[in-house]
């Protein structure tokens, strides 16, 4: 494993967590979703977070992205301590420093693709940098679909619009939660290679939660979670190395979950 930075606020880390604990519920129903996690997310890398259902990977992302508040521990995003931030500052942080790509329902159905892309800038009342907008739109290959509504776009196109939206405000870091979970393999490959290119060519930092070893193999580094703890990591992964680690992590009882991630997700209890 990579050694943790002595001072997490240095420029090498875009985001980091120390002693992160998240507890849901109380008494008998209590769940320790995150059980003391220390992690550094490197600047200018695509970092994948993997783990079986209930491992806490989504909770980790939600906490680090300021969508959820941690029970204990310290989180720094782009040098800012977000554990201490109130809702108002978190909103500003999300608006200005963080980009999001979700698994589904990424776009506002009443806005066109172009309006969806510039939405974070409009909300922040910041001007649109037209050159950067063009660069992002060309990178995702959506130039001719800008005037369309989400309902008129394919699933892959919708996710690419979401990626463009995440990048257009030049955030410090983009958090992607299962960005390819609803896509066929070809569309998934398009989205993933775009995310990788955004890191390699545009210098973006990206954190991606995924179930899919192939998706994880696009990352510079893969973190593995189990039962709310960081248990392994792989640098420069390939699908095979990722699968090996997953096999090691899960006992025979867990095999069904990791080998059939989609089925596992729908079997999760309804919230």
């Amino acid at each position: 494993m990579r050694a943790l930075a002595a001072d997490p606020s240095t420029d090498a880390q875009i985001a980091s967590a120390r002693g992160l604990v998240k507890i849901y519920g109380t008494g008998a129903a209590q769940v320790r979703a995150l059980d003391g996690i220390d992690v550094d997310i490197a600047r200018g890398e695509l970092t994948a977070v993997m783990g079986p259902s209930g491992s806490g990977k989504s909770t980790l992302m939600h906490c680090m992205a300021g969508l959820d508040t941690a029970t204990a521990g310290r989180i720094l995003v782009d040098g800012e301590d977000i554990g201490a931030a109130n809702e108002r500052r978190l909103t500003k942080l999300r608006r200005n420093r963080i980009g999001f790509v979700f698994q589904a329902f990424n776009l506002i159905p009443t806005l066109t693709a172009a309006e969806n892309i510039t939405l974070p800038l409009d909300i922040a009342r910041r001007p649109v940098d037209q050159d950067w907008f063009d660069a992002v739109v060309d990178a995702v290959g959506l130039r001719d679909r800008l005037a369309h509504r989400p309902a008129e776009l394919s699933g892959g196109q919708q996710q690419r619009v979401a990626c463009a939206r995440a990048l257009v405000s030049r955030p410090a870091v983009v958090f992607a939660d299962e960005p390819t979970g609803n896509l066929d393999s070809r569309s998934a490959a398009e989205v993933l290679s775009f995310l990788r290119r955004s890191v390699d060519e545009l210098g973006q930092s990206v954190v991606m939660v995924t179930h899919d070893p192939t998706a994880a193999s696009y990352a510079h580094r893969v973190l593995f979670l189990a039962d709310g703890r960081l248990v392994a990591e792989v640098e420069h992964p390939t699908p095979d190395t990722v699968l090996d680690v997953l096999r090691d992590l899960s006992g025979p009882a867990r095999g069904a979950h990791t080998s059939a991630p989609t089925a596992a997700r729908t079997a999760e209890p309804v919230r």
Partner: peptide, 16 residues
């Protein structure tokens, strides 16, 4: 609900 969550995630304030 989801749409509102998305808007809030990308930075829409409560007042907005």
């Amino acid at each position: 609900t989801r749409e509102i969550g998305l808007l809030r995630a990308v930075g829409l304030g409560r007042l907005q």
